[in-house]
Design a protein around this nucleic acid. Sequence first.
DNA 1: CAGTAAGTGCTACCTAAGTAGCATATGGTT
DNA 2: AACCATATGCTACTTAGGTAGCACTTACTG
Lengths: 235, 235
Amino acid sequence: MKTTEINYTECLSHLKGNKLFKHLNEDAMVSLLGCFNYKKWKKSTAFFHADGIANNFFIILSGRLKSYHIDLNKDREYTVSLLGKNDVTDVLSLLDGAEHDINFEALDDIEVLCTTNIKMRAWMEIHPEIYKSFMPYMANRMRVLEASLTDNVLADIPTRLARFFMANTDENKKLININDLSHDELANLIGSTRAVVNRHIQHFKEAGIIEVERKHTYIKNFQLLSQRVYESNYY
Amino acid sequence: MKTTEINYTECLSHLKGNKLFKHLNEDAMVSLLGCFNYKKWKKSTAFFHADGIANNFFIILSGRLKSYHIDLNKDREYTVSLLGKNDVTDVLSLLDGAEHDINFEALDDIEVLCTTNIKMRAWMEIHPEIYKSFMPYMANRMRVLEASLTDNVLADIPTRLARFFMANTDENKKLININDLSHDELANLIGSTRAVVNRHIQHFKEAGIIEVERKHTYIKNFQLLSQRVYESNYY
DNA sequence: CAGTAAGTGCTACCTAAGTAGCATATGGTT
DNA sequence: AACCATATGCTACTTAGGTAGCACTTACTG
């Protein structure tokens, strides 16, 4: 690993805190780190599918990275997932070798460990115990995808918005991770548009559920929010 | 394995034709079969999440099984995936042990090999090489989920319908696997309702793209269909 | 500190999708 | 043959969500 900007032990401790890799023994850990380069990207750096980015494999150390699709006809974007610390990408092209046409954009300054799918696959061949630890990670990602899918089909936008806020609260009932996003980004995340999301945010404000400042959202009444979430349900 | 209704070698050949299990050696194959029971279910048999069905693990030998969510408030259903021969379920609860609230219904008379998640997990512990072969299967399932998700957010219903037909054609440009579904089931699959899907089916008929009989859909002009599909695109 | 880009709030309008209801057709069952 | 559940086709209507446009505000940048 190139250690120009971050030291080796720091990276090691990152991996040891990552569910996918924490179970590895010291030797495997060292050889894994040998495959990666440490990189930083500025906020708003974008990677398009066409750039061949999907043939690389990243472990996110800090910052948020969104994966998204654009509709060229209409002027719309959909954020498929919001990746953060301890997430990896792109799992799909890594695991089945096929192309994955999706784009990425850094929502913050981010730090990643970077390698190619080819190198990563070679390492996995030698350390097959890694496959098992990928299982719950993939299962969790699938759960999120499936929940979003069902939501987007069956739930209206205020419901999706409420659920999205709810899903991003911590134990103190405060909004985390998405509290500094613009209404535009929120819209991309729940599959709608800025104007519509803004409309419903006004309703939530009137109802006393949330408070809004420029690029900041706060939950004002958690009780009301969870009420709004559980009004509509499916099984 | 209980071999009351199907013989052992028949099951073995099923497993050898299944991408998930074909790579196993003879011993592993035999011990795997030892975990399962052979079962048949009649068409329309339904399993609800509440029944604890999700703690079982199935390999589908023949027939179609849909996994779906119902919205109790509105009167709607969404078919998350249509599983068939060589598919397994439920991967999610198997791999991370958490509840997966989803329902199942047999669209045909179906045959399955059936075991509990607990037994299957125990077997996997002893045969960890299986984890690797699960990878591309899961990756593929994730791709399908992600594509549906993006479609449901960004594409309108005629586009989704056209894509859905397109995705279910064989090398002879004939409709397979979904050609005998009612408009109601089609609607569930693309995230809409019977009346709306029927509306667009009329348009497709007028345009000469498809032909429809009671519970049968045929592609009349594949060229026109693929044109309709590629009109709208995203990346 | 002036200029500019980005974010927000809101009005007015348009349209695809959903809903309700009914007529007709089909195929299987008694 | 008569019956009945299911499937389909179609009309009329409602509505949530999307679109366009603009005013105002905030924060950054040269």
